[in-house]
């Protein structure tokens, strides 16, 4: 049940495949995953770069705990979270969440839970670079 903070660009599909090969063959019937990547626009402006800051010790602690509680709640075979920090450019992956379960209902629900909890609780902050300068990102509740 790894939760990994990533400091460099990563290919989520490779990470997903790589992790799945570590799971016991035949132990799951469903894998649901979510990948969030950086847009080149936000709130009506072009965005050329983003810096993702975090609170390292708390972030790792929170994500580890989230993986553990999610696995227990949905009786998953495993769960995976990867999240970028540092300087990110449009098109690059920011986050990967995945859940492996016996059946799709648990996999879909658990994957969504991982993402929604991470978005609302994990101590990460985005600062984006626009043509008029840098600004901190504020989450809009309507943008899900």
């Amino acid at each position: 049940m790894p939760a990994t903070i990533v400091t460099h660009s990563f290919v989520p599909w490779q990470a997903l495949e790589q992790h799945q090969t570590t799971l016991p063959t035949g132990s799951f019937g469903a894998c649901a995953n979510f990948v969030g990547s950086m847009r080149d626009f936000n709130a009506g402006d072009e965005v050329s770069e983003m810096t993702l800051e975090h609170y390292p010790a708390m972030t790792q602690h929170y994500l580890d705990e989230l993986c553990g509680t999610t696995i227990a709640q949905w009786q998953l075979v495993d769960a995976l979270i990867m999240h970028r920090v540092g300087i990110i450019r449009p098109g690059e992956a920011i986050v990967l969440t995945a859940a492996w379960a016996a059946h799709r209902e648990a996999a879909f629900a658990a994957c969504r839970h991982l993402m929604e909890e991470l978005k609302s609780q994990a101590p990460f902050w985005k600062k984006e670079l626009t043509p008029t300068g840098e600004r901190w990102v504020h989450n809009a509740p309507s943008e899900k």
Partner: peptide, 9 residues
């Protein structure tokens, strides 16, 4: 620690 609302993901 003190920080603003989080914006990860």
């Amino acid at each position: 620690a003190f920080f603003p609302p989080v914006t990860g993901g």
